[in-house]
């Protein structure tokens, strides 16, 4: 196999992007908190690999920094921190879903279809890499939001949010010449989000002795 062949390069980029979508479905499927966090670590790892591959293909060494951020920060540090939070706060170890797994998965499939239908006409005149890359990115974005709105627990919502961020970065690296500044700002945004959500978790914990966001509802019927 010749790695300098453009066709092969393209296929590898597709493989990595596609795996992110698949892992995203895995994220949706998990019912235990620790495995959700692990799945997210895999998600971030694949993102790191995809970014690194793009850095190689596009001959853009600055993208290696982004890849490093994804691998070190998102694939290692954040999951570790989340594991710590879950242990420390004694969070309920099962994922509380709003709809059943099957329904959520079906909605996810529909969203991937929608992403294809939206992105194909828009990127007709761009290259094949851009089209497929943006489709995958859009699908990851949609699935991230879907995760956020179909999970009751705050930790899983944080993970959905960060999966969404991964989608954004995947979209950013697929396009030639994305400046590094934006990369770092995106990474910082994730960091800020993590801090905010972290505080948020501690606050809920302090107030309600639970991380169930239903306690934030004004009309909540849960006995406190």
């Amino acid at each position: 196999m010749e790695f300098s062949d453009p066709k092969v390069q393209l296929q590898i980029a597709y493989l990595l992007g596609g795996s992110m979508v698949v892992v995203n479905f895995a994220l949706l499927y998990q019912s235990r908190m620790s495995s959700v966090i692990n799945a997210f670590a895999i998600h971030a790892t694949i993102l790191g690999l995809a970014v690194a591959w793009q850095a190689n293909v596009q001959n853009a060494p600055n993208l290696y920094i982004t890849a490093a951020i994804a691998l070190v920060f998102k694939a290692l540090a954040l999951p570790a921190a989340l594991h710590y939070v879950v242990r420390k706060l004694n969070v309920h170890r099962t994922v509380e879903m709003v709809f059943g797994t099957g329904l959520t998965m079906m909605a996810g499939v529909a969203l991937v279809g929608l992403a294809v239908m939206i992105m194909q006409p828009v990127t007709q005149h761009s290259g094949a890499l851009v089209t497929i890359d943006l489709i995958f990115a859009m699908a990851v974005l949609f699935l991230g939001v879907l995760m956020m709105i179909t999970r009751r627990n705050a930790v899983t919502q944080v993970i959905g949010f960060m999966a969404m961020e991964n989608g954004l970065i995947l979209a950013a690296v697929g396009v030639h010449g994305m400046p590094l500044v934006v990369e770092i700002s995106v990474a910082l945004a994730v960091l800020v989000a993590f801090i905010v959500f972290g505080l948020f978790l501690f606050r809920i914990r302090e107030r309600f002795y639970s991380l169930d966001v239903r306690y934030l509802d004004p009309d909540s019927r849960i006995p406190q």
Binding site: V98, L111, M117, I118, M148, I149, P218
Partner: peptide, 24 residues
């Protein structure tokens, strides 16, 4: 106006999806 954050996100997401489909 009296919903959880999750529902708000859901409303926004549904709006986005509908708008995208209309645009398509």
């Amino acid at each position: 106006q009296r919903q959880s954050i999750r529902r708000y996100l859901g409303f926004m997401f549904a709006t986005l999806i509908i708008l995208l489909m209309v645009g398509m």
